[in-house]
Computed example of a mutant assay.
Amino acid sequence: MRDPREVLTRAAPPPRLTVAYGDLPDQVADVWLPDAPSLPDVPGVPAGKSGNRATGEGKSGKAVPLVVVVHGGFWRAEYDRRHARPQCAGLAAAGYAVAAIEYRRVGSGGGWPATFDDVAAALDTVPALVAAATAGGPVRVDLERVVHVGHSAGAHLAVWAASRHRLPPGAPWAGESSVGPRPAGVVALAGVLDLDAAAELDLDHGAVRALLGGGPAERPDRYAAVDPLRLVPAGVPVTLLHGADDRYVPPDFSRRYAAAAGAGTTLRELTSAGHFDLIDPESSAWPAVLDAVAEVLRRA
């Protein structure tokens, strides 16, 4: 029987390039591009379209949507963006430009507030950096077609970033970004979307407490500022995918978020899918992930 964690170390095509959104080693994003000679038509991009509305019409190259991947790993330093390479390569093979952001994590200068500083900055600025880096090439990025895809703790971060407009004025990261493009939506895969419950269940041996410096009773202001369940609804449509057999993040987390967020949020539970199937292009769950990204773009 195949070990579902095998995807975390599986060999995959390396990124085409890396862009930096800050001066620190972890403030970077790896970029994959679809192969130009055989670019498939992707959702929301008419066949034969060229140019990019963000970088100029009429230039060579086909404009494609950008998927920004926020990797998981319970916010810990031992899990970096490299484990998302199969996922990113799979998305690029489906016709998308892909940027996998890195950010400071617990054990490497991350946690409160650095992890959130980095993710907010990355999601605000990386799309434009990728568009600039690929300008004039055979594949160009359409900044009006951006989707954020997060897995596990990365889903928490992606949904949180889309919910910053719910923060009170003056709070860290409050308000919507005036720097980067507004995403068409967020696809949250097996998301840690209830931080109070994650702390109570002691997921990954205290991962949430390590991230925020304590439990909800000790750090109530921090939980209030970064728990997506307290910041509903997000500012963009959110699609939740969760495997019914997830042993790492309870599917009830996504159910509770969907119930609280209401309209604009879609939940799909995948029978017989586990935690890592959602980032594995070789799994039976992978087509559902591609469908979710395509649906976000169709609705945009």
Rank of each mutant, 00 (worst) to 15 (best):
T9C: 02
A11R: 06
V19G: 10
G22L: 11
P37S: 06
L39E: 11
G48T: 12
R53A: 15
S60Q: 14
G61E: 10
V64A: 00
L66G: 13
L66K: 02
V67N: 06
Y79W: 14
P86S: 08
A89F: 05
G95M: 06
A97P: 01
A99L: 03
Y103R: 02
R105I: 07
R105D: 05
G107S: 08
S108Q: 09
S108L: 03
G109I: 07
A114E: 11
L129F: 05
P138R: 08
R145S: 13
G150D: 01
H156A: 03
H165P: 00
H165R: 12
R166D: 05
R166N: 15
S177W: 02
G185R: 11
G185F: 07
A190G: 15
G191V: 13
E200K: 11
L201T: 08
A207S: 15
R209P: 02
R209I: 00
A210Q: 15
L211K: 04
L212M: 11
G215W: 07
Y223R: 09
R230W: 00
L231S: 06
L231N: 05
P233V: 10
T239E: 09
L240E: 03
H242K: 07
D246V: 13
R247W: 04
R247L: 13
R256V: 01
G264V: 03
G264M: 12
T265V: 15
L270A: 09
H275R: 13
I279S: 02
D291G: 11
